[in-house]
């Protein structure tokens, strides 16, 4: 693979072509703030927070580090005055949309951002992580963006129960502002934001409903198995207790199951 020499925050480095600025920064140990980036998911470039300055032949430009592939010799500034100014503006706009929530709150504090355009109360910053994790990693695509402009939002088709959702909760897991809540109520898993409602299977040991039946089917399909090992059918609490029982000569739980 061809490589190029770049300078990032004054550090010279030879990097393979087409590597993203964000990856270079991570290698060197420079922290760039991100909201819509996840290492397991294709960069989407939605939040713009990872903005950095690049200089090529004396010309400066601002690009998003997460999805900018390095092609030639450039100088990168990840944290100079201009970059910080833009980042603050982006955070001010995010605060105007969702207020102080999750990672937005963290970064707002770190960059000492005042609410210049007011404090909003939407739940979602439209980063796309939930949509993309469901599509790329889970391979289900139960949800997507709908509408556009100021009405753009994450939703299930027709705002109805998504028939293909397996209730895995990956969307909730990746959300940087905790917009997607997963609740297990009696024998149902409810993900209100995306109108999902799934029947739960009981834990083999304690009988507490804990895993969506559709998720079991999904795992079976992935593994090409007719039956699943108990490890998938026992809830986390019971798994913990069981391991303790097996590993310690004198069980802390008194051997009770």
């Amino acid at each position: 693979m061809k490589s190029v020499e770049i300078i990032i925050d004054g550090i010279k480095k030879i990097v393979p072509k087409r590597i993203t600025i964000l990856k270079i920064a991570q290698d060197v140990g420079i922290e760039i703030p991100t909201l819509c980036y996840h290492s397991a998911i294709e960069p989407y470039g939605a939040c713009r927070l990872c903005i950095v300055e690049i200089e090529r032949n004396g010309r400066k430009r601002y690009v998003t580090a997460c999805n900018f592939p390095v092609e030639d010799e450039i100088k990168i500034e990840t944290n100079n005055e201009n970059v910080v100014k833009i980042r603050k503006l982006i955070l001010e706009l995010l605060i105007a949309k969702v207020g102080y929530k999750g990672k937005v709150k963290e970064y707002a504090e770190k960059y000492e951002v005042e609410p210049r355009f007011g404090i909003g109360n939407d739940d979602c910053i439209l980063c796309g992580l939930c949509v993309n994790v469901c599509k790329e990693i889970i391979g289900v695509s139960a949800i997507s963006f709908s509408q556009r402009g100021i009405e753009r939002k994450v939703s299930s088709p027709f705002e109805k129960e998504p028939t293909n959702c397996i209730g895995c909760g990956a969307c909730s897991f990746v959300c940087p502002v905790d917009a997607i809540k997963v609740e297990d109520i009696k024998n149902e898993r409810i993900i209100k934001k995306i109108n999902a409602k799934l029947e739960l299977e009981k834990c083999k040991i304690c009988q507490k409903p804990f895993i969506p039946k559709k998720l079991i089917e999904y795992i079976k399909n992935k593994l090409g198995a007719n039956v699943l090992l108990d490890i998938f059918l026992i809830c986390n609490e019971c798994k913990g207790k069981n391991y303790v029982d097996k590993l310690l000569p004198f069980s802390l739980t008194g051997g009770k199951k």
């Binding site: 997507s144 509408q147 293909n164």
Partner: peptide, 30 residues
């Protein structure tokens, strides 16, 4: 709606993606 579901199944496109397109363009109406 029923036609969008039918198309989704026939062409193997997730319904969510069809819904996304359908609500994006002004030329479409649900």
């Amino acid at each position: 709606e029923d036609i969008l579901i039918y198309i989704s199944e026939k062409l193997n496109i997730p319904l969510s993606q069809i819904y996304s397109i359908s609500t994006f363009y002004r030329a479409f109406s649900l």
